[in-house]
Design a protein around this nucleic acid. Structure first.
Lengths: 222, 222
DNA sequence: AATAAACTGTAACAAATGTTACATTTAAAG
DNA sequence: CTTTAAATGTAACATTTGTTACAGTTTATT
């Protein structure tokens, strides 16, 4: 048994071939196919197994991969559905999950996941890294969202993006995307940006940004 | 070697005594004592080991345990300092950490943590659970913060707190604490609350809340 | 029971952001 | 190069929230 997209799975990706074969044959799990537009996981459902989406795509209200919030997130195979919640004390799904097409889901019991981790260091490393990345992402979003003013968010974001804060750098998102990322209205963002330019804090040329006044920049984090 | 507060550590707490002894004796780690008011970890530092705070307390700018944001978080021993970041791809500390008093920190290499996990199922379970709880907490905060209006935040929060939405329930935080939790000003919260009462959506009696109109409640999540 | 402290309600006003609308500029498609 | 669509700049106004201040209420302390 060899799965088509096994390699691109964030958790099972880097395992070597031997392991992959043994891994899947060995795994006590149930595979299930769901039709299109079916609600497969309800908010509040107990999460006692890892749901690995292996074929198709589902949608869920969540924080999306590219950082937008409370939008509909579309998850495409292969990806685990909520790997972090499997081990939390309050192990309930935080959201509904609905299929967008016919999907295949492998349901792996928690005990099996733990066994795999104990026996396969790469698997454990991948699992931990995947969750760690998610945590870091969430922390970052939370820091950004907890800044009250739009100018503050801009300042935080730009300082994070600029490797060298003395040189110009590129942001490859347009204003609409940035506004959505910040959770603010597009014209409001534009106003704040142009004010920051007028105040001599930054300069903008298309998608090239430059920080001109670091002190004023830092004052914006109130 | 037996550590005083070993049992109250979220990760090493539930291990049985045998394990505890073997565990600590066996562990290839370095213990270090830092004086008061020293910056021991800088934002951006590479995080290649688990920093376990075993004695004393430190402060860090972060999301606090009780949910307040971008405030100064005070961490008291025993607790790991940033267990999630150890395994993330971009393994850098997101914040500065400064000692508040003389502290003792055990620095455990990543490889040792992995070895412990492989050999000690309880340890692995604890580590995973601790990180999972953190993730769930962050997701929850993010959902709350991403609601734009104060009334929306209130609605979200109350619906989460009420086990049975048809019966009255208690919130044991006062208005100031709630306002801080929501990241809004106290008088603004009071205004929104009293408007929701006037509109017949909820009733409030001291710290007893009741949801009166579920439909109007749900309309607030715009 | 008296006093002080903390908490709550509320009002007037300031500030920030959202909304709508439209002109202008830039990028993409033909 | 022309035409069209997308992105940006900006203005007027509405709405929400913050700020400050203070009075009324409740709770804790003595």
């Amino acid at each position: 048994m060899k799965h088509k997209d096994f390699d691109s799975c964030p958790i099972c990706g880097n395992l070597n071939i031997e392991d992959e074969e043994a891994f899947l044959d060995d795994l006590k799990c149930t595979t299930k196919v769901y039709p299109k537009n079916e609600l497969i996981i309800r908010q509040g459902d107990v999460c006692d197994a890892l749901y690995m989406l292996t074929l198709g795509s589902v949608k869920t209200e969540m924080i999306t991969e590219n950082g937008n919030i409370l939008g509909i997130e579309i998850i495409k195979a292969p990806r685990p559905l909520a790997p972090a919640f499997l081990f939390s004390d309050n192990n309930h799904f935080p959201v509904d999950v609905t299929t967008l097409e016919e999907v295949e889901i492998i349901k792996i019991p928690k005990s099996e996941i733990m066994r795999m981790m104990m026996t396969n260091p790469d698997f454990m490393q991948n699992y931990l890294t995947h969750n760690a990345n998610r945590t870091q992402f969430l922390t970052n979003r939370l820091q950004l969202l907890s800044i009250k003013t739009i100018k503050g968010k801009i300042a935080h974001f730009l300082m994070e993006q600029a490797q060298d804060t003395t040189k110009p750098f590129y942001i490859n998102r347009n204003q609409s995307e940035l506004a959505e990322f910040f959770g603010v209205a597009r014209p409001s963002l534009a106003r704040s940006l142009s004010e920051m330019v007028q105040e001599g804090i930054i300069s903008i040329n298309k998608k090239e940004y430059k920080i001109l006044d670091m002190n004023k920049m830092k004052e914006l984090f109130v």
